[in-house]
Design a protein around this nucleic acid. Structure first.
Lengths: 206, 206
DNA sequence: CCATTACGCTACGGGTCGTAGCGTAAGCGT
DNA sequence: ACGCTTACGCTACGACCCGTAGCGTAATGG
């Protein structure tokens, strides 16, 4: 008596190759058409599957694009460059490089916009993108604390809040720079940003 | 021989009341329907004008929503609370309050997403929202320098770059907190954020 | 009063949506 | 090997929205 979501169900299994083809086709369509002109019929054609197959796996455009974009951010790695400042610069540059890609820009912003009116979608984004990359902050902090570059927190609850804050500041700054100000988050900018993040505005000299 | 965009042209003038009604109707529709389900026909009905009138003034949904949302951010004021930290907290809380409104969330993010594939739209956003509110950073910095809380910059070019950076950090953090992390930018969060912004991560104790 | 521009209204072809229905393909258990 | 079950491809469909054309009417300025 296996539940209906049992690991091995009866019947023909879903094609894993189709999943990959659909997500890749979605990203390609995002590059060429952008969010608003992207149609599920077009994605299905690009992926070589029927439109109905697509609807059997995803509830709609929103969910599909979340999954397609989430894969992009899994490339992120925290490099060990010897100092907290250098580590931050490294990971921020990677994040900026991903956000510079057109499929990431248009896709991510659009689904976030939709998520403001769709609780389930918001949770999907949080789980598969935001929360998933928060690991980088935790890793970086632990490494810096081991080096003695950051003070050790005694209260784990406050440590968690601080990590969330850092994530919002770092990711938010890159997003705003790239999309709102529409200027590249290049090495020079990242250096300036890292300096402000570590030493604050009140610090005197460059 | 007046140019065709002369201050007083011949013929019936456009109704200013219609403009206001349309923008208000757009915001109301954003609240009730969100971006994706918002239709121009519906906005026209709400505003009590014909759909064709709407198309005579705006090229499409994108431009309309930019103008409707831009008005929201004109409420922002920089309060004089006596210290840089308090000034920042005050303006960030105002910004957070605006971003908490559903019409701001869904509208702003959606047009930013579209702007990644539309140069003219990007410029419209930059001019009527981003660049327009950068005044707050310049005002705050000048005030803080007068108080001696911030060092005076000698090179105006670098001062400009720093102002842009601050704007990206502040606005980006609030946007990310509100929309990506989907948690409120309340007073406690704003205090923590301001402390990090002013003193940096390396500073020891709260 | 006349030229000019804005407005309201109706109607239209074109496109996308999301689903239903059906025949076929691919694994699983006996 | 055979049936059971589920996935897939294909077609067709009503519903909806888009953006525009056309026309008669309303409101200004000279």
């Amino acid at each position: 008596m296996q539940s209906r979501t049992s690991p091995t169900r009866a019947g023909r299994p879903r094609s894993a190759a189709a999943d990959a083809a659909i997500l890749a086709a979605t990203r390609a369509a995002l590059v060429e058409l952008g969010w608003s002109k992207l149609t599920l019929g077009d994605v299905a054609t690009r992926a070589g599957v029927a439109k109905t197959t697509l609807y059997r796996r995803w509830a709609g455009k929103n969910e599909l694009v979340v999954d397609a974009v989430a894969e992009l951010f899994d490339e992120l790695r925290l490099p060990d460059r010897g100092s907290l400042a250098a580590d931050i610069e490294g990971v921020v540059l990677q994040f900026a490089a991903i956000l510079a890609r057109p499929e990431a820009k248009s896709g991510l912003m659009a689904v976030v916009a939709e998520s403001t009116r769709d609780e389930a979608l918001r949770e999907r984004i949080r789980a598969s993108i935001v929360e998933r990359q928060k690991r980088l902050v935790l890793e970086g902090r632990a490494r810096a604390q081991a080096r003695g570059e950051l003070p050790l927190e005694e209260h784990p609850e406050e440590a968690s809040r601080t990590a969330d804050l850092i994530f919002d500041v770092v990711a938010g700054a890159v997003v705003h720079r790239t999309l709102f100000s529409a200027e590249p988050a290049d090495e020079e900018w990242v250096r300036s940003f890292t300096r402000v993040l570590l030493t604050g505005l009140s610090s005197s000299t460059p």
